[in-house]
Amino acid sequence: MKDTFSGLHPIVNFTYFTAVILFSMFFMHPVFLGFSLVSALIYSIYLNGIKAAKFNFLYMLPLLLLVALINPLFNHEGVTILLFINDNPITYESIIYGIASATMFISVIIWFSCYNSVVTSDKFIYLFGKIIPSLSLILSMTLRFVPKFKAQIKVISNAQKCIGRDVSNGNVLQRARNGIKIISILITWALENSIETADSMKCRGYGLKGRTSFSNYRFDKRDKSVLGTICGLILLMIFGMVLGENTIDYFPSIIFKEITIISAIVYIGYAALLLIPVALNIMEDIKWYHLKSKI
């Protein structure tokens, strides 16, 4: 399925994920944790389909239980003691905190899996190319070299096979030695090749003033409105943070603010922020459905 949010400007994508991942790490209030986990699940399944659902249930659910169990065993704070194991108190607060921190941990991991499929490396390099030009050049060249090396190692190993010196020839020791030989050939080739590339870059004026770089991203009206919404909601969250709507004390006993109209607004704002990509996708689907039915 095509993701509408991925089609937006990289700045919008990056701002969204930075905010969402930081907030997910930050807000330990159960309502916020629940929203974050549910939205992360929805978006990851929307992005990656059955594969994401499988991953979430096969790996994330056991991890959640494990993290939730570990905490009460080491954390003996809290006033409500439920039972003693080897003279160590197991408290109600630490169990609840264990579940909360496990939820936080899992939702951050799932958000990262969404980040990986939306903010691709070309978007990252586009964003940071201006601020850290040399490093992002290294980054993009490294990304290019990895598949190139994989192809070249096949070429080298075929050539070595012709003279009976491939990893499939000889006894174990011989094979290992041939393998190392192939790797050193690859490294030599890569370095010699890179010097040639560097010289040709220099000839074409790399690093001179006034050079521009190509990109096919355009910041249009749609990006402006989505970025505006994201920034507005981030401000609302910071406002809520100042008021203490999303903080919670787990120790010594669980204390959080009563739910009022203001806190309800902050909750809704958080849900809206998290669900922006899903909402965009649904809007796009509806639009597409109507366009299709007209024809």
Binding site: L137, M141, I187, L191, I195, A198, K202
Partner: peptide, 11 residues
Amino acid sequence: PQARELLVIAI
């Protein structure tokens, strides 16, 4: 940094 240096690090 020079192009050569960048390339070697990238390799």
